[in-house]
Structures are given as structure tokens and as C-alpha cells.
């Protein structure tokens, strides 16, 4: 018998995020599971801010930037939940992390003891030349639990067409 008690929804606030959240919440209802939403502030972004901070310490402060970004991301996720998925009746927690996205996702899988991961096909690194998000593929390769990669036939076809040009 399949038992799914906790679902990790990887949300990067890109075009696919609503679909990922929709899938995760629909499955959570089916399995009577709870959802943990994870959003990762990419290490590359933090490194860039740190570097800028060295040149312009009066303008850039890493700690302040992190605090503001975390608050902003949480607020955007909460807005998405309220606007599209209000009253869904399931337990939802939000986890904002900083680091290498796929590493943070793998860490959360273990720490939260999730049974299923739901993520999007393309994330913020939405390069036209790659069909798959590299982080999605890395999670798919290394996850110890099932991974559901949410795709949209139209978007996938459009990306494939761009790739063939």
C-alpha cells in the first residue's frame, strides 16, 4: 500500500510554481498528507551580493539582503497560497533556505522525512537551450524518495522547438 504523509513542493517562484503547488496540494488531498514548501535562495546570488558588498559596503549588506529576501519570498508564497489555494484544508509549512538549490532540496527530503517530492520542469534558470532544469535533474538523480516532475505539454513543446533552432 502506498503511504504518503509528507510532500515536499519545490517552489522557485517561476512560471511553473503555481502548477507545482497545484499538483502537490491535489496529491496531499488524495493521500491526506501535509505539504512542506521549500524555496532556496541560490548560493550564486548570495556570492554575487557578498562580492558587491566588498566593493560597496555602504550600499550592500549581505545579512540585510538575506533577511529582506527571505521575508519577500515567504510573503510571495503566502500570497500565492491565499490567492489560488485558499481553504484547501491541509497543513502547509514554508521553508526558505539558502544554498545550492538541489543540495538544499536533498537535505530537506532527509530532515523533513518526506515521502514524495514535487518540482517543476523548468525553474528560474530558464535557459531556452535546456529542456530540463539542471536542479530538477540533480534531484531526480539523487533523491531517495519518489520525485514527481510537473510538466506542461505546451511549454515543453515550445522549449523543445527553441532548442532545435
Amino acid at each position: 500500500m502506498v503511504e504518503v504523509k509528507k510532500i515536499l513542493a519545490c517552489i522557485d517562484l517561476s512560471d511553473y510554481s503555481e502548477e507545482v503547488l497545484d499538483y502537490a496540494i491535489t496529491l496531499a488531498r488524495m493521500f491526506r498528507a501535509e505539504v512542506v514548501i521549500i524555496n532556496v535562495i541560490n548560493k550564486r546570488e548570495i556570492d554575487a551580493i557578498s562580492m558587491a558588498g566588498q566593493h560597496y559596503p555602504e550600499l550592500v549588506n549581505v545579512a540585510t539582503y538575506m533577511q529582506r529576501t527571505k521575508a519577500d519570498r515567504r510573503s510571495r508564497i503566502e500570497t500565492l497560497l491565499d490567492s489560488v489555494f485558499a481553504g484547501n484544508g491541509i497543513g502547509i509549512a514554508i521553508r526558505i533556505q539558502a544554498g545550492v538549490p538541489f543540495e538544499e532540496i536533498l537535505l530537506a527530503i532527509n530532515e523533513e522525512k518526506v515521502d514524495l517530492v514535487v518540482l517543476g520542469n523548468k525553474g528560474r534558470t530558464n535557459l531556452a537551450r535546456t529542456l530540463l532544469g539542471s536542479h530538477a535533474e540533480k534531484v531526480f538523480r539523487h533523491s531517495p524518495v519518489p520525485v514527481l516532475n510537473v510538466r506542461n505539454r505546451q511549454k515543453f513543446a515550445a522549449a523543445a522547438e527553441r532548442r532545435s533552432r
Binding site: 499538483y23 531526480f140 533523491s143 531517495p144 524518495v145 519518489p146 520525485v147 514527481l148 516532475n149 510537473v150 510538466r151 505539454r153 515543453f156 513543446a157 523543445a160
Partner: peptide, 9 residues
Amino acid sequence: VPVSVLVLH
């Protein structure tokens, strides 16, 4: 695959 895919490990 152009549709959502669930991979079991």
C-alpha cells in the same frame, strides 16, 4: 517525456 513524470526510487 512532455507530460508530468513520477520517478520511483
